[in-house]
Design a protein around this nucleic acid. Sequence first.
DNA 1: ACCGCCGGGTGCC
DNA 2: ACCGCCGGGTGCC
Length: 879
Amino acid sequence: GERNYSWFSSSDFYSSLGLEDFPSVGDISGTEEDTESAILYGTLRGSVVGLRYYTGIVNNNEMVALQREPNNPYDKNAVRVNNVNGDQVGHIKKELAAALAGIMDSKLAVVEGVVPYGAKNVFTMPVQMSFWGREENREAVVDQLKKHGFKLAPPLKGKFGSKWISGRAGPSYSAPVHAAVQLTTEQLKSEFDKLFEDLKEDDKTCEMEGAETVGTLLLPHQKQALAWMVSRENSNDLPPFWEERSNFYYNILTNFAEEKRPENVRGGILADDMGLGKTLTTIALILTNFQDGKPLPVERITNDNPECCKLLRLSEWLQGTIRFLNFYFALNVQSVEKKYSDDGPRATLIVCPLSVLSNWIDQFEQHIHQDFNVNIYVYYGSDRSKDPSVLSEQDIVLTTYNILATDYGMRGDSPLHRVKWLRIVLDEGHTIRNPNAQQTKAALNLEGHRRWVLTGTPIQNSVKDLWSLISFLKLKPFTDREWWHRTIQRPVTMGTAGGLGRLQSLIRSITLRRTKTSKVKGKPVLELPERKVLIQHVTLTEEERQVYQSVKEEGKAAISRFFSEGTVLAHYADILGVLLRLRQLCCHPHLCVNTSSSFSADNKTPEELHETLVNKMKLVLSSGSDEECAVCLESLTVPVITRCAHVFCKPCIFEVIRSEQPNAKCPLCRNGLRVEHLVECPLEEEIDSSNGKKSDQEWISSSKINALMHALIELRRDSPNAKCLVVSQFTTFLSLIENPLKESGFAFTRLDGSMAQKKRVEAIQCFQSSQAGSPTVMLLSLKAGGVGLNLTAASRVFLMDPAWNPAAEDQCFDRCHRLGQKHDVVITKFIVKDSVEENMMKIQNKKRELAAGAFATKKPSASEVKQTKINEIKALIDL
DNA sequence: ACCGCCGGGTGCC
DNA sequence: ACCGCCGGGTGCC
């Protein structure tokens, strides 16, 4: 049910159309083995030579990595052999290297090695090689080998029993087994769910009080989390899969051994559900565990030292961006510097998405005891300090993934990367799930021993997503993708026996996860009131229906044409536009007056073309299709639009163009791409394409507004004190609703993305107030505010229009259905009968099913993906 | 002897 | 490397 669903959040418009799986999208990274379709061609015995020249040692049955060395001065075919630690063991004998070089360079196969025996040899040792690749390359690989006089031994089938299938380096020149029975999606999923059952492990149920600097009382589950985090930071346990043997340490997955004790990560993944207080727990950790369980030393503000004032923090919000300036009194700076100058690192770095930056600031203000002076620096904005020592002197530095990536981009001069941090916290850590994204590389290269990932959804789509997180945590040997892939990812995705078990023990040892339904001492973590979702159908008036039908027929005709021309993807923005207009018409006829349809972009001046593109981009961004870049799968931060009207992150699409030059193609539709054709658009917090000039139009009602007003008035009659949220994706619609609210004498307030921070805070405080005469209605735009937004005063929600992404709706509902809610929450969704809205609901449901089965092993084929996508567009517009 | 055979020097790519 | 290979020394029985 719900708890598992929240682990997966693939859902967005792209996935509903199957676009994120569009074959060409995956080609971008290129180098990586395609896990889903890689098979084992066979094995080959070869030899490693030149052992005496290198220091790298191996054990019998230890995995080794084969690495091309094209610049070797003696042989351009050279292939070096490294042990798990990355130390060179030797080279592949030259005749064999000559055969491998071509195969490896052209990426026809991935070649993996295991040294079966002879590890103690002085001059040469045998190596058992496995060749993995896609079926269509098998013949080419076999031919290539044959040319050099080598022949693959067929992969051994599962007849050797589970020990061989386990994927260990094992006694196995028996390669593990593509013939192993694959688990069904359902089996995999239920296996995976077990990861988080049975959390009564002792080390996770101890409680710990926060230091006195923590100004808020922690709930029991937060005290548990604090105790767990502190113990993770202070303990010296071995990392998972390592054993202490007589005088060395042994990795049971790769059979690698070393004398040096492998360091365990002083951190882990806090994967609690949203709303359980990951932020508060992290603040408590920072304040409570500075060194050896001692609290962070901070200035106490007392009557004796009035001149040592609390830092004056001045926050200033400009156009949705944040300037956060710290003013120090000279005295203060000195005393702070003196106190810590001879210690090691003391600053904690917190990286978060921009959307939750303000939430962190709020939470600091709320949870750091007011009598204490904690130095917090918000490293954001163009005036951020380039001096690393300014950062290292802080207690806490807060920044965003984008700043992190931008700074890292200007090589060598990133202050964030020059500081040795006491602790690094990645909030919404799944942000770095794409190993090729700049922000991931930037995060992996931060320095600091205590490393934490906060996320409610560590796995977005597949096990693959975990690698970046594990690598960030610096867990040996997984920091290198090859070992992660060979020991965990491939066994899991191939359903190899023991694979899931390994993943399980790995995750368990570094993760704490509680859901809203988890229990502490027999009691639910959070005792939340019930939450009910009602669907209220709305029937359009005759007049409304007529307008709707005519727009629908026009759009349908256009889309049919795209289908027959085979240009569906090229007209992506146009199709979204048609659907958007239909969705707007379901709400109110005035919403879509301004979006004229222009299906032809030909014969335009560059200026007109530019404007058309910007408009298309705004359309894509505002259509609720969940602004996500198809390259990195992240939310768009610096969106650019291509001439073919597809929107990507600027750095992502630049990377595509750079790597594919000179003939780069759009990842979505394979049209030509050129840097000079890309159009940039500043991402405002909220873009509403329909912000037409309603002032010169006479106000009229609509069926949906009538339905809403009817419900509101009924609610006021039955429970006059009940407060409610009226939610829409269209801020113009919210404006239209203001009218009848005033007429019927409702006190209301409003919160949308375009409002300045100060006004937001006012609106929220005003609405949350229980004073007589305080507003009972809040007009809320669906995506306004970060995850932290707390609107628990409301116990009713009216969702005026459905979102593409059910998760976006859920997140919105959670703003009132969260800690502090005292009443049952009733949510009413208004859905127009026989309309695109009903179709969207169907797709939402499909999406929930899809998310539930997101652990699928089998990737649908390109044609299946295409068919699904086409079916869904057809379903949306009743084609 | 434009060979065989011996035994020392030597050794990845 | 307790190998192979190289190339110099050597040469009936």
